[in-house]
């Protein structure tokens, strides 16, 4: 595409109540074209019933080279992990 287009990230919701899931991206000149292109690329085979498009530039992300500082789980600091509880009987989904 020529100057003026943007990249948009596409999120599809399989059914009402479930989270929106990132499925890919599209090029488009504006919101309306982005949602149409997203529909044509990502929802033709019953992938979902709701669609979001977000300009890629609007998404704030962690720079790759900062990943360690952001995400290191510090496994040596055991107190960060909630593992000291006795789980009562009958609790199934913890």
């Amino acid at each position: 595409m020529e100057a003026g287009d943007k990249v948009w990230e596409v999120f599809v919701q399989k059914k009402s109540g479930l989270p929106f899931k990132h499925v890919g991206s599209v090029h488009a000149y504006d919101k309306k074209m982005a949602i149409q292109n997203a529909r044509d690329l990502y929802t033709r085979r019953s992938e979902g019933r709701a669609l979001w498009v977000v300009p890629t530039e609007a998404i704030v992300s962690v720079p790759l080279d900062k990943a360690d500082a952001f995400f290191d789980p510090s496994d040596d600091k055991a107190y960060r992990h909630a593992t000291f509880y006795d789980i009562p009987e009958g609790v199934k989904h913890l």
């Binding site: 599209v26 090029h27 488009a28 149409q36 292109n37 690329l41 033709r44």
Partner: peptide
Amino acid sequence: PFLEEDIALSN
């Protein structure tokens, strides 16, 4: 004219 529209027209 561009990939996304190509797919839309094919649809």
